[in-house]
Simulated assay, not measured.
Amino acid sequence: MNLKEEIIKLKEELDVTLVAHFYQRDEVFELADITGDSLELAKRAKATDSKFIVFCGVGFMGESVKVMSPEKTVLMPKIACCAMARMIDEGYYEENLVKINEAGISNDDILPITYINSSAAVKARVGKMGGMVCTSSNAYKIIEKGLKSGKKIFFVPDRCLGQNFAKSLNLKSAIVGDGSDLKEADIICYNGFCSVHQQFTVEDIEFYREKYPDILIAVHPECDPKVCDASDFVGSTSQLITYIKELPEDQKVAVGTEFNMVNRLRTKNTYILSSTKPECPTMNETTLQDVYNTLKSIKDDNIIKETEIVVSEENIKYARLALERMFEV
């Protein structure tokens, strides 16, 4: 029996749901019971009756499942790190607040909003300050709701998302630490970014438009604002999937997001918007062997300590509050 067959057999025997993000390797993705983007996975994992959730993705995603389903045992075959999420922690969050205060803006005049790509600890800090979580697909609604408070939005950790959404809403944005005027901004952005989506450039778009005059360009809002401005469609992971699947088969499209996902979209007339392979290295760390080892540890009642996601009760409480405020919107 090969590794794939062993995994299928263990899944049938155990009270477990195998979950995988869109960016996972094909061999892992294909075996998952639930696939999707980060928030969708947390919501669907919560809805299962399984005692064990085996989550294939990056650390902050496993934490989101634990925050929403603290009664479940959440295991990650590989607790890989999202580079963007790692750019901010509680310490950096506080340092940025100090810089904002030094610019003449008090905490009482700030409403923090954190992108889902952040740790439970950061989400909890945002929740304590009355803030919310957002995703790339609902950020417009969340920011619009936040602005009704009359406060400035402190958007963490992705500056590109913050800038792109500010521009789409005809608002002013500024980045902490780059010398821009924070007092003039409606949305103050933390200076983080996604290393994969930074690979796409306006030059890439120009190359494809010159080669295929009728081609469409579709990108993720984690891309640089200049890239988003030059594209035909900007949308979240799920929005990109819907947009591309609804295109006529003969319509060429170049896509600016992670390689594994784009590669699965459709077989014809779909191109990667990059001269290099935009593959998320940490999303590709999880292997079939890792999945098997985790499932086997459940069967043997000998869970590998390093695979279990643990979040403190306080962080669960306040991170969940930030998530619930998003769901209300």
Rank of each mutant, 00 (worst) to 15 (best):
K151A: 03
V74R: 01
G131L: 03
F207C: 11
S137T: 13
D232P: 06
S106P: 11
C56H: 03
L247F: 03
V310S: 13
I8F: 02
S119P: 01
K211S: 06
L321K: 14
N284E: 11
V202Y: 11
C134Q: 09
N170F: 12
I309T: 08
E210L: 12
A254N: 08
E246V: 13
Q199M: 15
K9M: 09
G104N: 08
I187L: 07
K277L: 06
G256M: 09
S274T: 12
N164K: 05
M326L: 10
G162F: 06
T257D: 09
S118W: 03
C280N: 01
D89E: 09
G104I: 05
V255T: 09
P225Q: 13
T294Q: 01
K78I: 10
E6M: 03
S149R: 12
G235W: 08
A20W: 00
L247T: 04
L265V: 10
I53N: 02
V122K: 04
K305L: 14
C134M: 09
F233G: 03
L3R: 05
V67E: 03
M76K: 06
T135L: 07
S274A: 15
S119Q: 00
G104Q: 09
M132T: 12
K305G: 14
I8M: 04
V67N: 07
E206A: 13
T276V: 14
E308T: 12
K172Y: 10
Y271M: 03
T17I: 08
V65S: 11
I217N: 01
L3Q: 07
A322S: 04
T201S: 09
K72G: 07
M283R: 04
M61F: 09
D224N: 15
E314F: 03
G57E: 01
N302E: 14
R86Q: 14
N138I: 05
I142R: 00
G179P: 08
A124C: 14
C228T: 11
N269S: 04
F155S: 02
I244W: 07
A20K: 00
N263I: 05
E324H: 11
I8V: 10
C56L: 08
P157F: 07
D300A: 13
I88S: 03
F233C: 08
K66H: 08
I272Q: 00
E63Q: 09
K123V: 08
V122R: 02
A47L: 13
S173T: 00
A80W: 00
G130A: 10
N101L: 15
P112N: 01
Q199K: 15
K296N: 13
R266Y: 04
N117I: 02
Q289V: 02
T294S: 07
L147W: 06
N2K: 08
K66D: 06
N170P: 11
K123H: 10
P70Y: 12
E328A: 14
E95V: 13
C223K: 01
V16I: 12
P225I: 11
T282H: 02
T282D: 07
D37R: 01
E27Q: 02
E279R: 11
